[in-house]
Design a protein around this nucleic acid. Sequence first.
DNA 1: ACCGGGTGTGTACGAACGTCCACATCTTGT
DNA 2: ACAAGATGTGGACGTTCGTACACACCCGGT
Lengths: 190, 190
Amino acid sequence: MTSDDRPAGTRRGRRNDPERRGRIIDACLTVIAREGVAGTSHRKVAAEADVPLGAMTYYFDGMDALLHEAFTRFATSISARFEARMTAAVDVQSARAAVVAIILEDVFGDDRDLVLSHELYTLAAREPRFRTITSAWMARSRAALELHFDPETTRMLDALIEGVTIHRALDAEPRDPREVELAVTRITRT
Amino acid sequence: MTSDDRPAGTRRGRRNDPERRGRIIDACLTVIAREGVAGTSHRKVAAEADVPLGAMTYYFDGMDALLHEAFTRFATSISARFEARMTAAVDVQSARAAVVAIILEDVFGDDRDLVLSHELYTLAAREPRFRTITSAWMARSRAALELHFDPETTRMLDALIEGVTIHRALDAEPRDPREVELAVTRITRT
DNA sequence: ACCGGGTGTGTACGAACGTCCACATCTTGT
DNA sequence: ACAAGATGTGGACGTTCGTACACACCCGGT
């Protein structure tokens, strides 16, 4: 990813803080969450990150490369949280509870993540290049679920989580948390 | 072209064919499917529909209004197909089969619809104005499912359909059709 | 026959965009 | 101390965008 890995030791000191690249990526996600991929431009990201416009093309080979890195960071952080939840579960019962918690808290909790997810999905639906990000994300989720469930159940749970997420975002109808529990129960009883 | 033989109303004769508005909407969906909402402009839609640029602002109050109409048409046509499938089912068993068919054929079948769905979802996730479209869509799906299933099961099925759709679009991993059947079975057995 | 208003269009305009590159500034080796 | 190279920047350029408006066209009424 980061093509400019420091050649260690002798080479010190960027002119400015070395976190600039990272700041730009974070700013990019912020802008996407606020204005959508459609409304994201070099200029807006530069303003958000408080770097000059010229820095955009200096650090990234165009908007597309920046988007790719930004969404990679996003997906990685989301799936890390997912994995942590599932790893913490010690048996099937607590794993079920973890799945419910993921849906109710992580997914339902944060509007920013919700919006960013959709932006990524849309990008990935059209451009295969972004599908490596979503594939990796899903593979990691699946692996985490398979710590506790058989592969078939895992697929179903994964789909359920996804589907509830979508409906949560797009449906006016309020959701009853108990429904989520019930659904998880039905799917995981074999 | 197509000299318009007006049916009787006092008001005879638009200058051009009265289907222009509709053609623009269809062209808009085509452009969105090809280039995304991000890449959709008045000019591209005008070119696709083969109408002058000026016609865009003449028929629609800006891009946003056009998008809203376009996605309304899209969602309506999709949910009509869904409803037809469910209405045709005569008992629970055929209803289950219908759900499986919807997932495997309608949803898995058409890349264009998949992409357009995601574009709409993303729009709706950010802008409440577009959520009326998705809400109506989902309400109609739910109503159709409730012809055969109880409300709770309906919600779960709905979420499952959505989730499998997403994963189908974004996951490299191939899906086994039998998994879909199994999932539907598990959810619908009470 | 011709006029008046409704219908539709060509085009110009300012804003915003991504990209590029000459140049300013700093670091390092000598 | 200074040259040379690495690092980062400001602003100009050409493109594309949405919008607006003056005007061409057509039709029904007189």
